[in-house]
């Protein structure tokens, strides 16, 4: 057996309480991330990627809460930790980058101060030391003139610069795990590429594991070795990225890949409409009892409607949850 993974999520359930009802927003999700590994989590908006990520650092807000399951970080169950134990991990060992660099930073505090907070919180630095470290941290994310930039407020920076600041904050304490929730979705394509490259370089240097959440398969292909596909709160497929792109097993993954536009392809095909997956993601209150993709699936049979398919092992730790995979 190899060394235990850095993060292991076992049968995670996330519930949403509305009145007396309990809705399973995320059901039975399991995956693990090894040390230094970049794991991708893919799915459309509302499939539960982000709340899965937030649950890892105990930041779910009401009405959401973890129903059952285990989240093992270096062998310790995060769900059994008390508030102050979790706070010592948060930002320090596990940190997070969010989608909107425009709103994720406090508009009334300098970026230097917002980076410096990390050193004060987790390394017991004085504010004076912390400010010096903040300049170094800004330099590491390749912000030019960091000694001047630390005095800037977020509104004085571009989106790309702000996301660099977010990365500087997240990586300030050299965490073991970085959760990146759609870190480049709000950015221009060229800036996207720079930010991704920066993240990859810094994390590679430091051996930081990354949980990369995205709906952009291109980003996942570039950054990750392994990837999990989520649909309506279920993890439907987990594969090595290369295998996934070559032989998608789940019908949903199939559909996702088929609906990717290929640059220039439409002109060759005489402007054939883009391919899409028929139907829409069911609302949380109306999740099917069986396979949640069944209403949109072309391969569906009666068994799909009644029971949730268990994982079919595809070798090398990969699996797919589908009765008719292939």
């Amino acid at each position: 057996m190899s060394a235990p993974p850095l993060l292991e999520i076992k049968n995670l359930h996330i519930d949403m309480r509305s009145g007396q009802e309990r809705l399973n927003v995320v059901e039975n999700v399991s995956f693990s991330i090894g040390a230094g590994e970049t794991f991708g989590l893919v799915g459309e908006s509302g499939c539960g990627k982000s709340i899965t990520a937030l649950s890892l650092i105990g930041l779910l807000n009401r009405p959401l809460s973890v129903g059952q399951g285990e989240i093992l970080f270096k062998g310790q169950n995060l769900l059994k930790m008390n508030g102050s134990e979790l706070r010592r991990l948060r930002g320090n060992r596990i940190s997070m980058i969010f989608q909107e660099p425009m709103t994720a930073l406090n508009p009334l505090a300098t970026v230097g101060r917002q980076i410096a907070e990390m050193f004060v919180l987790h390394q017991g630095s004085t504010w004076h030391e912390a400010e010096r470290k903040a300049i170094a941290a800004l330099a590491q994310v390749q912000v030019p003139a960091p000694d001047k930039r630390v005095k800037n407020y977020p509104h004085q920076m571009s989106g790309g610069m702000r996301q660099r600041v977010m990365i500087a904050i997240a990586l300030a304490c050299h965490p073991d795990l970085l959760i990146a929730d759609e870190p480049t979705t709000a950015l221009d394509v060229t800036v996207q590429a720079e930010i991704l490259k920066l993240m990859q370089e810094l994390c590679d240097q430091r051996g930081t594991s990354v949980l990369m959440i995205s709906h952009d398969l291109g980003v996942i292909a570039k950054m990750c070795r392994r990837v999990g596909i989520m649909y309506a709160g279920h993890l439907v497929e987990e594969r090595a990225v290369a295998d996934l792109f070559r032989h998608p097993a789940h019908p949903y993954t199939h559909g996702l890949l088929a609906s990717l536009p290929v640059l220039g392809q439409r002109t060759l095909d005489e402007r054939k409409p883009l391919q899409e997956i028929e139907g829409i993601v069911p609302s949380i209150a109306a999740f099917p009892t069986g396979c949640r993709f069944e209403p949109r699936c072309t391969r569906a049979t009666p068994i799909c409607r009644d029971t949730v398919p268990g994982p079919s092992i595809l070798g090398d730790g990969s699996f797919v949850r589908c009765y008719h995979h292939g």
């Binding site: 650092i57 948060r90 990390m118």
Partner: peptide, 12 residues
């Protein structure tokens, strides 16, 4: 959003 960021930094 920045309050969520602040919480993710691990402050009380």
């Amino acid at each position: 959003d920045f309050i969520r960021t602040a919480r993710s930094k691990g402050m009380n």
